[in-house]
Design a protein around this nucleic acid. Structure first.
Length: 681
RNA sequence: GGUGAGGUAGCUCAGCUGGUUAGAGCGUGGCACUCAUAAUGCCGAGGUCGAGGGUUCGAGUCCCUCUCUCACCA
């Protein structure tokens, strides 16, 4: 018997600027299966999470929606809680980083770090938006790459050539908040002296706190030398003000992981657990963080160093996983594959997704592809065809010929023992996050159960009432196989497992229940535990989103939030890359251009869009261009603009041009080599 | 560009410290069965293990080079 473990587990904090989606669910499900497994084994396992609510993106999104950041994060919090609960994520507490508890803890940890000499003040130069009156994070400055001259790059690195730099290096920089050119300004910032923790972190990592492949990845960062970490941001910033530093706020990534502690504090108060049991230096309890591989840096370097520096314990382990792709591609709003938890839950059982993810999830950090056809086939085959089928084909005989009573002894003890003998291996697979391995083992047993029933053919024996005892024995054996398998699967399929326990007339199971067969008791009438998935319905997970794209883009309501930074009047609202992808820009060849009688600003153009064929559109460029000079040239048009009826006909698109109007208007042209129909992106 | 991960049957993946004819599930072809949600069982077809080179008695498994995919870069 293993000693009783006391474990605190977290999932990464979802950012409070959008809904829970399948990518985050992979993490929540991975964590929850592990948590439920630990509880099933009889360990004390507490599971907390919270919304990550601070930072510039939240501040600007709230402004764009005309509400306060507090209102925004409250709305999102309600949705997040509901989505996770409906996904059967067994959180003990779901809090928010914008909580009183978190404020207290941030200050406490910060002061502890300061007292210990881990904080240093430095003056830095940073891009500043003089119109919006705010310092700009690197991602909020765009401009032309100083290395390869690709325009439209973010302030930290170039997506075209991969160069990294600072916003000051950009050519022609603009603030994406106001659209104006940022200036440089000095500001005093607070740095956490991460570089002092190099040796401690290295030993922590070699002690098995992370997966091996992750450790290799971290080696890169160590070999480059750890840089100190800027943990402060200037006002205006949605977050907590730093004690003793008016106008300075904790960077969102400083207060986010502390949100784990804050959420845990709330749980401690509610159920009477001692915070120090889990966080005092040298605590004998376990602390496990589950995260996506994108935030490794924060959780494997900053976070353990901050904890240690503040005199607290370090995590036992940080478990990283890969991302979800849909049908082989990144989730994308424009492809309709950005599937939210809600969209999934509107049509399907949470357990199906839990099973599918579990069946494909290993301990590594590879991405997991969700193929919708495979999802359907896998669920129908494994759950309905194999697993549930065992109960379904045995229960009827027990009810009819034995009055619902199970036989008093097992027909085949050895085969049952073969099932229970796998418990250790399956448990080890769960423990090491090799859920796919666990599922493989379990399904192999399900095959053996079906084989057993097939060989004994109870349906043949049942034709003669003399064989009643034998039929009962076979089906008792079969149902016990099913029971064992459901116990093994209960971390993945908690509701089906609970229903199955009721079907057997038993109290909720624990892991060791599987070791003893259930005999001589009366079972309940069998009711279907799962129903088949329809491929068409599953495909619908994607199509509704695609339909949304076709709808006209409505501008986000914008209102000047009182007391907050008002973006400059000329500032377009921020859009995401997905929003941009909705606009189908195409290279077009102008086939003909003609004057329109009665229209003094318009020209009628016929353009060639390659595979999209030819179409007519009107352009308000008559004052600037002679039709004869336009024929044959290439330009760029918006190809998916809603057709617009005009007095002279219907315009099926829009030509891109810049300038105030009249004679000062300038058509865009692609460089030579572009062909009609090419997508501009 | 740097780094990491990955490239094994149509699909999704197992293959531990190198060792007999490379495995599973799904899909597919055939047969059987009809208790079970067109569920189940049996038999079969399908792979020069990304490419090339090397080490070895022997390599999917180790080393080198190349190539493709994905991710991360504070």
């Amino acid at each position: 018997m293993k000693p009783h473990r006391r474990i605190l587990v977290t999932s990464a904090l979802p950012y409070a600027n959008g809904p829970i989606h399948l990518g985050y669910l992979l993490e929540a499900i991975q964590t929850d299966i592990w948590v439920r497994f630990q509880r099933l084994r009889g360990n004390e396992c507490l599971y907390v999470c919270a919304d990550d609510t601070h930072g510039t993106p939240i501040m600007l999104k709230a402004q764009a929606e005309g509400i306060s950041p507090e209102q925004l994060i409250e709305q999102v919090n309600v949705e997040h809680r509901r989505d996770l609960a409906d996904m059967l994520i067994s959180l003990d507490n779901f809090g928010s980083t914008h909580s009183a508890e978190n404020k207290v803890l941030c200050e406490r940890l910060y002061i502890a770090l300061r007292e210990a000499g881990h904080i240093e003040r430095r003056t830095i130069r940073q891009a500043y938006d003089a119109v919006a009156n705010m310092f700009l994070p690197d991602r909020y400055v765009k401009g032309t790459c100083p290395n390869c001259a690709t325009p439209g790059q973010y302030g930290d690195s170039c997506e075209a050539c991969g160069a990294t730099y600072t916003p000051a290096d950009l050519k022609d920089p603009i603030s994406v908040v106001s659209g104006t050119r940022p200036i440089e300004r000095e500001s005093e910032h607070y740095f956490f002296r991460l570089s002092k923790f190099d040796a401690d972190l290295r030993s922590w990592i070699t002690e098995g706190a992370v997966q091996e492949s992750v450790a290799r990845k971290l080696e890169e960062w160590f070999s480059q030398g750890l840089r100190d970490w800027d943990i402060s941001r200037d006002a205006p910033y949605f977050g907590f003000e730093i004690p003793g530093a008016p106008g300075k706020y904790f960077y969102v990534w400083f207060d986010a992981p502390i949100g784990y502690l804050a959420s845990f504090t709330q749980l401690c108060e509610r159920i009477g657990v001692r915070f120090d049991d889990f966080f005092a230096a040298g605590a004998s309890t376990e602390l496990h963080h589950f995260i996506g591989k994108d935030i490794l840096y924060f959780h494997t370097l900053f976070w353990p160093a901050v904890l240690q520096g503040a005199g607290l314990r370090r995590p036992t382990a940080v478990h990283a996983h890969g991302f979800v792709t849909i049908n082989g591609q990144k989730m994308s709003k424009s492809r309709g594959t950005f599937i939210t938890a809600r969209r999934y839950l509107d049509s399907f059982s949470p357990e199906y997704l839990r099973y599918y993810f579990a069946a494909k999830l290993g301990p590594g950090i590879e991405d997991l592809d969700m193929n919708l056809e495979e999802f359907t086939a896998r669920l129908n085959s494994d759950i309905v065809g194999k697993l549930v089928n065992i109960a379904s084909r045995c229960a009827g005989f027990i009810s009819k010929s034995s009055g619902g009573k199970l036989a008093a002894s097992l027909a085949d003890r050895d085969l049952f023992a073969a099932f229970t003998a796998r418990a250790e291996q399956i448990g080890a697979a769960y423990e090491s996050l090799d859920y796919a391995g666990a599922i493989r083992e379990i399904m192999a047993l399900a095959d053996r159960a079906n084989q057993y029933i097939d060989q004994r053919k109870p349906w043949m024996l049942a034709k003669n009432s003399e064989n009643a005892a034998e039929v009962q024995a076979i089906c008792t054996q079969g149902l016990n196989f099913f029971r064992t398998l459901m116990i093994y699967l209960s971390p993945v399929l908690p509701v089906m497992a609970a229903k199955s326990a009721l079907f057997f007339g038993e109290a909720p199971w624990c892991w060791s229940t599987a070791g003893t067969p259930l005999l001589g008791t009366t079972i309940q009438p069998y009711e279907a535990l799962a129903s088949r998935l329809d491929m068409k319905a599953v495909a619908g997970l994607i199509e509704p989103a695609a339909a949304e794209i076709a709808a006209p883009v409505t501008a986000a309501p914008r209102a000047a939030a009182p007391g907050a930074v008002a973006p400059g009047a000329a500032a377009p609202a921020m859009i995401s890359i997905e929003d941009f992808a909705r606009i189908d820009l195409r290279v077009a060849k102008i086939l003909s251009a003609e004057l329109i009688p009665g229209a003094d600003k318009l020209l009628k153009l016929r353009v060639d869009l390659g595979e999209q064929g030819e179409r007519d559109l009107f352009a308000g460029i008559r004052a600037a261009y002679d039709p004869a000079n336009l024929v044959g040239r290439l330009t760029v048009v918006v190809a998916n603009l809603q057709p617009r009826k005009m007095r002279f006909g219907t315009s099926a698109g829009m030509v891109l041009a810049a300038g105030p109007g009249g004679k000062d208007i300038f058509l865009l042209s692609p460089d030579s080599g572009a062909a009609p129909g090419m997508r501009v992106k």
